[in-house]
């Protein structure tokens, strides 16, 4: 059976690459620290020696729009283009082509259906920054095949926080059953408190530092009970209108299980709290 080598849950600040590669005299003061933290975080994936990446993110109206917006979707293609014109324009993120892993995509899709998750699926999927940002930060060579999973954290009605947790648990079972000697890592991205296009955007900190502090505590200690007691769609809205991306971090902890992280770090940036979490469920790379 396959080995779950690592689970990573990370925020995806789309300006990381631009902020850390512009001429040093133009860089923000925190750029060097940000780069150090990201490189240390990257090492937690490298150390796990993964062969395949299950990538969790959310399409930000790049391929999918309101005429047909999936709640949960799995990519099943042999190869994936990445980065849309408007992401290159706004964030300076380059284009990529990632190899897919059709065998694991199919096995995952069937396993999800068997467990009551009737996923939408795509055989021509172009990935957006929710998947490419973590590739840039955790696997910049982009040299591993991926199985992309998209969730709806963006357009109400959204699935519940509990549903994201349960989906993570289902993905874990399926990875554990995958008949292969490969090492699989799951890497997913989301947000802590976040405001976009509203009165609390682009402040000195994220819109709700108190939520950020608690969320880091809950995730790093594996405290799913506290999350499910405290986090609802309404509470996330109060923390910032785009905070619902937190549910993808809940999903990632669902893949790991209710256990403490082996590694976590954070960085208070303008506009958001960046946070990085890694679990080694098998103790494999600890």
């Amino acid at each position: 059976m396959a080995t779950l080598a690592a689970v990573l849950a990370t925020t995806h600040h789309p300006f990381y690459l631009k902020a850390t590669t512009m001429p040093p005299e133009q860089q923000m003061p925190q750029a060097a620290e940000w780069k150090r933290k990201v490189e240390a975080y990257r090492e937690t994936l490298t150390r796990a020696k993964p062969d395949i990446l299950v990538m969790v993110g959310a399409d930000h109206f790049h391929q999918f729009f309101l005429d047909n917006y999936p709640q949960f979707l799995i990519g099943k293609a042999p190869r994936y283009d990445a980065t849309f014109y408007n992401e290159e324009r706004e964030f300076g993120i380059p284009k990529y082509v990632l190899e897919g892993h059709e065998e694991l995509s199919n096995f995952m899709h069937e396993g999800l259906m068997e467990r009551g998750f009737d996923f939408a699926f795509s055989h021509e999927l172009k990935l957006d920054h929710s998947i490419i940002c973590p590739i840039i930060t955790t696997r910049p060579d982009a040299d591993l095949p991926v199985v992309p999973i998209y969730t709806n954290i963006f357009v109400p009605p959204l699935p519940s926080p509990k549903r994201f947790w349960d989906l993570g648990r289902a993905i874990r079972e399926i990875i554990d059953e995958f008949p292969s000697d490969k090492r699989i890592a799951a890497v997913g991205s989301g947000h802590l408190s976040l405001e976009l296009g509203g009165p609390r955007q682009f402040k000195e900190t994220g819109p709700d530092p108190e939520f950020d502090r608690k969320a880091i505590e809950w995730l790093s200690t594996g405290n799913i009970d506290a999350i499910l007691e405290n986090v609802t769609h309404e509470s996330m809205t109060k923390s910032g209108n785009a905070t619902h991306g937190f549910m993808d971090l809940i999903l990632m902890m669902g893949i790991a299980g209710p256990i403490p992280t082996a590694y976590h770090d954070n960085l208070d940036l303008f506009h958001t709290m960046e946070a990085y979490f890694t679990w080694y469920p098998e103790g494999a790379a600890a």
Binding site: V155, P156, G198, P199, R200, Q201, K203, T237
Partner: peptide, 17 residues
Amino acid sequence: FAEKLQHWTGKDYPSVA
């Protein structure tokens, strides 16, 4: 952009639903 929306601070925003 944020400044022009300050009158919504602390209120329920119009829904994007």
